[in-house]
Structure formats: structure tokens, C-alpha cells
Simulated scan of single mutants.
Amino acid sequence: MVISGVGVDLTRTSVSWCKIRNWSLATLSLISFSCSCLATINQFFMTSQSASIRRLSSIKWAPRILLIMIFVWCCHGIPFLLFYDISPLTGTCISTNSAFAVYFPSIYILILDCTIPVSVMIVFGYLAYRNIRSTRALAEQQADRQFTRMILIETVLVTISNVQYGINGAYTVITAGMSKDANRLQIENFVATLSNLGCYLYFSGSCYAFLLSSSRFRKAAKKLLFFWQNTNQIHP
């Protein structure tokens, strides 16, 4: 917002912010995608008819898995702190390591930011939905109807935000060595801006979409947000 609205780009003047910003973008996005993937996998475990698979969904393991996942992605972001710097030639924040410049953004965007999370959420979301459809108790509670809407919305958000972002990233990598005129560069910059904005749709839209699609999610969210209104009552 500061860069686009005010025109002040601190990544051109502050080496620390140049490093921290790119580390944050890479690390926090992967943590968010991983949490969504783990939640989808956990839904598959919880709705399975197999007792051994249901036992894999354990609340005591959730904090441990979460801490391990955060640690892994924080370590994954260390090269961003080491290799990103302000170029003395262009004055922009870029990677000073040629090998890491190949990994980010091409491999990072296409595999970690697009292919893996989209595939995991679609596959395990479908498997969880199939489990619900085959379980009479959950179907009688109309859990399948609300769950179907939530999974469909999640899949649509992931598809719209990540797939187009991955396609634009692939196009950028493929055409990196081509000579382009000023008009084509302006068009590509415009498309890249739209792609970046579309990528934010997943991070900002999931919660609101769930609130609109599921009454149970709304009740749970209201109970958590307005926890001070939850009063205990003594019944005879």
C-alpha cells in the first residue's frame, strides 16, 4: 500500500527491510497454505470410517505438527535473509545469488506456492466429502451440505488465486530471455499486478466465504470472538 499509494519503496533504501519483506512473504504464505492443507487432511481423517485412520486425527499432535511446520518454513526462508540485497546498479531489492534466483520465483511459485497446496486440498477435500456422503449419521445432520459448500468455496478460491498466479509465474520464467518492446512490458506489468492481487484473494476471502456458506462456522466463530458473552448456567 505504501509503495503503490504513496510511492515510497523502503526496499530500495533499507537493506534490512529488503531482506525481511521477502522472508516474510515466502515464509508466512507457506505457513498459511500448510495450515489449510493440514486442516483438509485432518477433515479426511476425522470423517473416515476406519478407526485406525480416525486415530490419526489427534488434538495432542496438532501443536507439535504446527511447531515443526513453522520451524521448517522459517528455516526455508533463511536464504532470503542471506541472498537478498539492494542492487548497486538498479537500486532494487533482488537476489544476489544466481542459483537462488533460479529457485525463486520459478520453482518456489510453481511447486510450493501452487502445485502442492492445490493438489493436496483438492484430493483430500474430495476424499473427505466422499467419506461424509458414505456416512449416514453425518448425512442426516446435513453436515454434507455445509461441508460441500465450504470445500467447493475453498477449492474455487485456491484455483482462482494460485493457478493463475502459477501460470503468470511460468510465463515470466519462460519469456525471461526474450526481447520485449515497451508496450509488451507495460501489458505484462499490468497482468502481473492483477495476478498478485488475485493471489491475495485466497488469504483474505476464505474466512468470509466460510461465514457466508456455513451456519455452524458462523456459530463457532461467534462463540470464539464474543467469548465474554458465554455464561455458565446451572440447571436443576
Rank of each mutant, 00 (worst) to 15 (best):
T172Y: 03
T172R: 09
V156E: 02
S134V: 06
Q164F: 05
T135H: 13
M150E: 08
S161K: 01
Q141G: 11
L152V: 11
I153P: 00
D144S: 13
I160Y: 03
A137C: 08
T159P: 04
M150F: 03
T135Q: 13
V173I: 08
Q142S: 12
N162A: 11
T135R: 10
R145I: 01
G166D: 09
T172C: 06
V163R: 10
R136P: 14
R149K: 15
R149Y: 06
S161D: 02
V158S: 03
L138E: 11
G169K: 06
R149H: 03
I160L: 14
L152Y: 03
Q142F: 02
R145G: 03
S161Y: 01
T159S: 10
E140F: 08
Q142N: 09
T159W: 11
I160T: 02
V163K: 08
I160N: 00
I153R: 05
L152F: 04
S161R: 01
L138C: 07
F147T: 11
A143C: 14
A139G: 15
V163S: 07
T155V: 14
M150P: 04
N162D: 13
S134E: 14
Q164A: 04
I153A: 14
T159N: 09
I132T: 14
I160A: 04
Y165I: 00
L152G: 02
N168C: 03
E140A: 12
E140M: 15
N168W: 01
A143N: 15
Y171R: 11
V156S: 04
D144A: 10
R133A: 09
V173S: 05
V158P: 00
T155C: 10
A143I: 11
Y171N: 07
G166A: 04
N168I: 00
Q141V: 02
Q146I: 00
F147N: 12
A143Q: 15
I151F: 08
A170Y: 06
V156T: 13
N168V: 00
Y171S: 06
Q141F: 07
I132W: 09
R145A: 12
T148H: 08
Q164S: 04
Q141S: 12
R133C: 13
D144C: 08
Q142E: 12
I153L: 15
Q142Y: 01
I160R: 00
Q164M: 05
I167F: 04
Q142M: 11
S134W: 03
F147L: 13
I160H: 04
N131H: 07
T159I: 10
V173M: 03
L138M: 14
T135C: 12
A143H: 15
R133P: 03
I151T: 10
V163L: 14
V156L: 13
S134H: 11
I151R: 06
V173Y: 06
N162C: 12
S161F: 00
N131E: 11
S161E: 02
Q142P: 00
G166C: 06
A143L: 14
A139V: 15
Y171G: 02
M150C: 15
I153H: 01
R149W: 09
L138H: 10
I132D: 09
